[in-house]
Design a protein around this nucleic acid. Sequence first.
DNA 1: GATTTTATATACTAGCGGGTATATACGCAA
DNA 2: TTGCGTATATACCCGCTAGTATATAAAATC
Lengths: 216, 216
Amino acid sequence: MARTALMPAKRKPKADTSARDVKGEISAYKRRLILEEACHLFYAHGYEGTTLDAIAERLNVTKPFIYSYHRNKAEILREISERGIRLCLAALDEVRSNGGTPLAQLKAIVDRVTTLILENQEYIVVYQREEKNLEPATARDIRRLRKMFDTRLEALLDEGVASGEFDIEDTGFAAISISGLMSWTANWFQPGGRRPASEVIVQTLKMVTHMVAAPK
Amino acid sequence: MARTALMPAKRKPKADTSARDVKGEISAYKRRLILEEACHLFYAHGYEGTTLDAIAERLNVTKPFIYSYHRNKAEILREISERGIRLCLAALDEVRSNGGTPLAQLKAIVDRVTTLILENQEYIVVYQREEKNLEPATARDIRRLRKMFDTRLEALLDEGVASGEFDIEDTGFAAISISGLMSWTANWFQPGGRRPASEVIVQTLKMVTHMVAAPK
DNA sequence: GATTTTATATACTAGCGGGTATATACGCAA
DNA sequence: TTGCGTATATACCCGCTAGTATATAAAATC
């Protein structure tokens, strides 16, 4: 049983000023590999159902290897959990800063965020399920980010109501519902299943626009 | 530390034909008490974060007491997990059998099911989170029930489309979205928080009708 | 009130899994 | 080639918790 999978690719860093931090890059790459595999197993068997030895085995590595790249199991879960909301929030902010009519912005947000959610399905679901296994402080931090997402979405809805593009009674509630609708897709979407991601995105977009649209 | 909380209320069952099964009722009552407390702790600390000793302590009882009413920990989780979907499915079926226009039926379903979800919030959330800790066969069974719910909801939507009351492109997708919207409330609703349950129900109803309504 | 049955507690085990102290092999520099 | 530092593995420990064998008290039965 050769333990060769993650043997360091060797490269000799010259001491010149423009030297890339190859060592650091490799290190970061290994961290990512561990995270991906961990997420995959957490998704399949749950956090407590996944032993660190199991993660190590899948990588053809041993437990101390993992501990040299992540402080402990909870830390791994934390990084997995943060990923989804970080990406979604960044996407929302970018769309907002690009401007456009509220409806156009909303459509762009739903499109991009749903795409992200489906692409990062396992990360999203693991977070939703395993929040209780995070440090309380960490859980709070992430909840704050999610709240920010909803609040910023609400602001956009308010603009749309003001401009007459949207017909919404309670924009706060609508914002929660829309982000819920998008998050929910992660719970039932099956890659390779009957509905391809592209269709899920299109249909979600239609649901949302139908939900907020002012009568013509 | 007196262990008196669940001391059996004594009653002597007469051997006449109309005798109530008092013993059985008491037994069932104790089972329910255990389930409620277990659900409460699972909700607060997660399934793996809750020890059977902790449940026992909260009830002023010991672990073997629990084992004499439930086969094991997973069995407890199973009963908790089944509850939500059982209730919701029953409500849907009852509304369906009562008849009425598709729109009226949809409204009744959303009203009653959202109410059930908020009333049984902890049960719903525990199931959503801890599905991976169920026996695979059990998990499949429950998933089948949820699928039935969506399918029957879809059938109602089809009727509404046929009658012209609804304007929906993909009723299968809409059904998933609607049940998702309702389920999602369990994730963010806070009893005693800013939004009372009654308001959540009303707003959910509005979201759903807006989502499916045909333009007038 | 003696005896059997049931309900509950005490006290224990066994295994698992997160985390770590220690060993070893490998890459690199001179 | 040698020696050093780092990357990774081996082997271990410790705490915890699901589950149980056994004891005891209370209730039911006669």
